[in-house]
């Protein structure tokens, strides 16, 4: 059984940074993100018999992470002030100054979005999940994922409309994933 194999623990060890990245995108709180990831892995280690393969495990990990995050939100309402959000970019001051400003703007805009929109964009854009996998993680129909992604991107676009982008992040026409 995959849950009892050596690979199972290896995957957990490999995935925690991805989980942390998404948890941080949701919460913007280092300590909370680490705690959410720890709780997710602990739950996973307690139920190894649940997992038959790696894909299933990855989806389950993000599903549990999201449940932990939602539980935490229910427990404590106050959120991180988006004006205090830290951004850690390259520390080359001259060449990175403008892009760091843009990134700060992006993260602030992202944090100002609804939780649902943050969740869906983190999974689809940051983690690259398919709509089907995101639907499983968020426990919603695939059609809802499709409409939610569309609305979330539109919101982000509206928020970022007036930014003066540096040359190296100007849109590249016809670049398709």
């Amino acid at each position: 059984m995959f849950g009892r194999s050596k690979r199972f623990k290896q995957v957990l060890q490999e995935k925690w940074q991805e989980l942390y990245k998404v948890a941080y995108a949701w919460s913007h709180d280092r300590a909370l993100s680490a705690d959410l990831v720890q709780e997710t892995i602990t739950r996973c280690l307690h139920r190894p018999e649940k997992f038959q393969n790696e894909d299933e495990l990855k989806i389950w990990l993000f599903k549990v992470l999201r449940n932990c995050w939602r539980d935490d939100l229910r427990r404590r309402k106050p959120q991180v002030d988006i004006n205090e959000v830290e951004l850690h970019a390259s520390n080359d001051p001259e060449s990175q100054h403008h892009i760091t400003q843009v990134m700060t703007h992006v993260t602030k805009a992202f944090q100002a979005m609804t939780i649902e929109h943050r969740e869906i964009l983190s999974l689809i854009v940051i983690e690259g999940f398919s709509y089907e996998a995101a639907a499983k993680i968020l426990e919603i129909p695939t059609g809802t994922v499709m409409s939610r992604v569309s609305r979330a991107r539109k919101t982000l676009r509206d928020q970022l409309k007036d930014i003066d982008f540096p040359d190296n992040v100007t849109p590249t026409l016809w670049r398709v994933k």
Binding site: K21, Y24, A25, L87, H88, A89, S90, V102, M103, V106, T107, F110, L121, S122, V125, I126, L156, L160, V169
Partner: peptide
Amino acid sequence: LLSLAYNT
């Protein structure tokens, strides 16, 4: 931009 922001 979003991917880049959360890569760092």
